[in-house]
């Protein structure tokens, strides 16, 4: 599992991905960790298949008992099917996840972890002195979907928005936006169901000061590429399967 520190300040952001041990037939995912002095938040911790490499990678940054928070942007298996395993490994943790998915996500088993339901209008996650904003992103692509914004680090973790299917050796940041577009087009057209939801989300996100847009698959966008992505997404027609 490759680890890339993407923010270092009063706290840290680390991106985990490009897992070389991953079976070929499951989709590659990026996991993000927010580390404060004594706590640790895993954003979209990943599938059950990824649990062991992910746990091992996190142990480079935090001990098990300091993994206190998990966040699931939505209900997909690539996002959170590892929940049942975290549930048995962690003794004092919370899962922040969409309220409407609670009854579904509990199928993965969530007994020792406390499920903190996120209402439709979002909320915050407080990690010691760091306050992260939970930004609604419903229907992008899931009916109950959230992103996480860190105003201090200026990072927006954007779930499946901004995702691309990439090879295991690809760089973690977009280096040529024009070339990258082709890797994203079908994904966004096919997975994102609603032009209206997209418009509302873009409006909301344009008001945020973002240095890094960090999706759950593919590469992160940095600096001007963030705006490039928003413009490109704005012009794209989605929901093409009907």
């Amino acid at each position: 599992m490759k680890m890339t520190k993407i923010y270092e300040g009063s706290h840290q952001w680390i991106m985990f991905g490009r897992d070389e041990g991953k079976p070929n037939n499951i989709i590659d995912t990026n996991q993000y960790v927010v580390r404060t002095a004594n706590r640790c938040l895993l954003l979209d911790p990943g599938g059950a298949e990824l649990f062991a490499p992910m746990m091992a990678a996190v142990l480079h940054h935090a001990p098990v008992d300091q993994i206190t928070d998990l966040f699931a942007s939505h209900q997909d298996p690539d996002v959170i099917s590892s929940l049942g395993l975290w549930d048995q490994a962690l003794t004092n943790a919370k899962l922040h996840a969409p309220a409407i998915w609670e009854g579904f996500l509990r199928h993965y088993s969530c007994e020792s972890i406390e499920y903190v339901p996120i209402p439709d209008n979002g909320g915050t996650i407080k990690l010691e002195s760091v306050e992260l904003q939970i930004i609604p992103a419903h229907y992008l692509h899931s009916p109950g979907n959230f992103h996480v914004y860190d105003p201090q680090a200026k990072i927006l973790m954007s779930g499946d928005v901004g995702a691309a299917i990439e090879g295991p050796d690809s760089p973690v940041f977009v280096d040529n936006f024009a070339a990258h577009v082709e890797k994203m087009r079908y994904w966004h057209q096919r997975w994102m169901p609603s032009n209206q939801a997209k418009r509302v989300w873009i409006e909301r996100v344009r008001n945020l000061d973002i240095d890094i847009l960090a999706p759950q698959h593919g590469r992160m966008f940095k600096g001007d590429d963030v705006k490039r992505f928003l413009d490109w997404f704005d012009a794209l027609q989605v929901g093409i399967a009907v």
């Binding site: 649990f51 490499p53 490994a89």
Partner: peptide
């Protein structure tokens, strides 16, 4: 899985 994680770590 835990044993595997411990080994990988």
């Amino acid at each position: 899985k835990f044993e595997l994680a411990a080994k990988m770590a």
